[in-house]
Design a protein around this nucleic acid. Structure first.
Ligand SMILES: [Mn+2]
Ligand SMILES: [Mn+2]
Ligand SMILES: [Zn+2]
Ligand SMILES: [Zn+2]
Lengths: 144, 144
DNA sequence: TACTTACTTATAATTATTATAAAATAAAAA
DNA sequence: TTTTTATTTTATAATAATTATAAGTAAGTA
């Protein structure tokens, strides 16, 4: 995601207000390399700001997603995860336990084309689906 | 996704039963190049099988997803979309209206490695996020 | 400082998905 | 073929994530 300064500009340029809530949420996401859900973020954020509402968190997350500053991930566990790291990287998703982890492997494509089929491209991602070490073992044992 | 014959084997090998419901759902998904939601599929399936339950549809979709025969897509519109076409292909996702379309462009990586960071890899996908022709124009007009 | 408008909050509503348990049925066994 | 049994389906209810609403709050501006 972009820096706090750039996001501040983004909001102001569109007639928006840089509120304490937006700043708090931005700061928590910035440089975060996990894939938290809204609820997980909320529990963490409430510590510093007990009156923060889930609605505001969702609004802010949706806003960031629409700008391409964070990316939604559906891993199949029932809630959406958010990834503030939108530079190209490889993600591994377990088809059984739904774990999502960043891999250290280099992605196949480092930069996206600016335009594709009429879409203005902002970011891209690469995901690998399969069975994590735990589920793979469990799976093999059951089959045996 | 695999053929009906292969899926039949998959079920039987695991002590399962090849029911009329499973077959119906498999057939509807096979060779389907759209990205339907559970509800969209349900409306279509009900025509041929009025007593089919949403629960069964969800169970079957989850099962196929856990085998890697279909892939879940979260485009941010509130419900999960399913893609029965799991061979490598490029997808374009609009950050504003949440449209998802397959592109004709060639994906950066045609085959996935068998293993990565301990995961047994079954499939992979490549997504490009940005603004579709409609949202892009709307966006530009508003900004002007 | 006071004004305007965007934003936040608490609350309620909605909607997608999953759990439950009784009835049905595919497939194996007799 | 008939019987048996485990799996699956169905209807229903429950859950849990996300969004809508409307009144109050505060950021930006002059
Ligand atoms: Mn990631
Ligand atoms: Mn697709
Ligand atoms: Zn796993
Ligand atoms: Zn769009």
């Amino acid at each position: 995601m972009r820096t706090i300064e750039e996001l501040t500009e983004q909001v102001r340029n569109n007639g928006g207000k840089v509120t304490a809530q937006r700043l708090l949420i931005w700061q928590t996401l910035y440089n975060n390399r996990t894939h938290p859900t809204a609820e997980e973020l909320y529990q963490k954020l409430k510590q510093g700001s007990p009156t923060l509402s889930l609605t505001t968190l969702y609004n802010t997350l949706n806003e960031l997603a629409s700008w391409g500053d964070i990316r939604r991930i559906d891993n199949g566990d029932g809630s959406i995860h958010y990834d503030p790291f939108v530079e190209p990287h490889v993600e591994l998703v377990c088809l059984i336990c739904h774990k999502v982890v960043d891999s250290q492997s280099k992605p196949a494509l480092l930069s996206a084309p600016e335009e594709m089929d009429g879409f203005k491209i902002i970011s891209h991602s690469e995901q690998y689906y399969g069975y994590c070490p735990v589920c793979r073992d469990t799976f093999n044992q059951i089959k045996k």
